[in-house]
Design a protein around this nucleic acid. Structure first.
Lengths: 157, 157
DNA sequence: CTGAAACCGGACCAGATTTGTCCTGTTGCT
DNA sequence: AGCAACAGGACAAATCTGGTCCGGTTTCAG
């Protein structure tokens, strides 16, 4: 029904959260800060890493960090990383449906697909970050402060 | 994964087919012409009828016909009729997620949603009809022999 | 050198959603 | 009347997603 997966939603939250710190952040830490279950955060981060949106640092004291600023990440990249390439229907980019001869719609969705991709490429995560009503910014910031303290404690410990 | 349902795909095929005749057409007839199973065609048409995109004529000699020309039907209308209103995430148009205070992304997807809706409203079924490679234009009625050279028909957009 | 912390990558199950079909009215032409 | 065709919902099967868990590997700290 033309919705995107919840994982993509999470990915945006995680990425924005990741942008608030310079240091690498662990998935448990991000999970605590965002309220998303830890295994899910880990899964999202792994996917984002293989998509090249975040860098991973292995070993103790490891974690993740962004590869580019939020303003350089269009929404289309996040969706592509999580959900795979944007393709509204099976006909769009695979050469064709199995039966060329009977598929009366081959290539039909191409212009639609391109229009959507263009729209999605024009919006960056920085835009989405700005779009949050201020009512929700403050609490998020508060949560961040707390979490940051926790992080600091852990790091200095 | 950011795909639309197959039903929507069918709906476009059915609507385009419907536009080729002035007279009302029955669902069995359309099913035969498009190769889509008859019960499914009937389901799609019923949905489209309740969405106001086609008019139904009951009784013997009944059938369906378009309420407006293809050029006056944006893709967004078809999607809205089949899949419901366009809403990328649950947060988009419902007031909010259950827990306002903890949802750090309330309202975040709004600009994205609007961009997509705009892109979808700008493309009509007539545009999609034109987008079909010529190999597939005439032959919706009769399976053609030249299906092999579809590659040559790669869109010249 | 040893241990712990953290990522890697895949398998896995439960649940929701979608697909496609059918059945029983109701309407309206002939 | 009789028949053709739509109306509307119920339904089972299949697919997909969401979310979790596991063993393995890498790296840092003591």
């Amino acid at each position: 029904m033309f919705k995107l997966s919840k994982l993509t939603d999470y990915a945006v939250v995680v990425l924005v959260r990741l942008a608030r710190e310079d240091a690498v952040q662990t998935s448990p830490c991000i999970a605590a800060a965002t309220g998303i279950p830890e295994p899910t955060v880990a899964k999202v981060l792994k996917t984002l890493a293989s998509g090249g949106l975040v860098l991973s640092q292995r070993g103790a004291r490891g974690g993740y960090r962004l590869t580019r600023p939020l303003a350089a990440i269009p929404v289309s990249d996040v969706i592509a990383a999580i959900d795979g390439p944007i393709a509204l229907t099976a006909c769009v980019d695979h050469g064709a449906c199995e039966t060329h001869t009977l598929c009366p719609m081959h290539g039909r969705w191409d212009p639609v697909n391109e229009a959507i991709e263009a729209a999605l490429s024009a919006i960056t995560l920085a835009d989405m970050d700005r779009a949050i009503p201020r009512v929700f910014r403050a609490p998020a910031d508060a949560a961040r402060t707390d979490a940051a303290k926790t992080d600091a404690a852990k790091i200095t410990a």
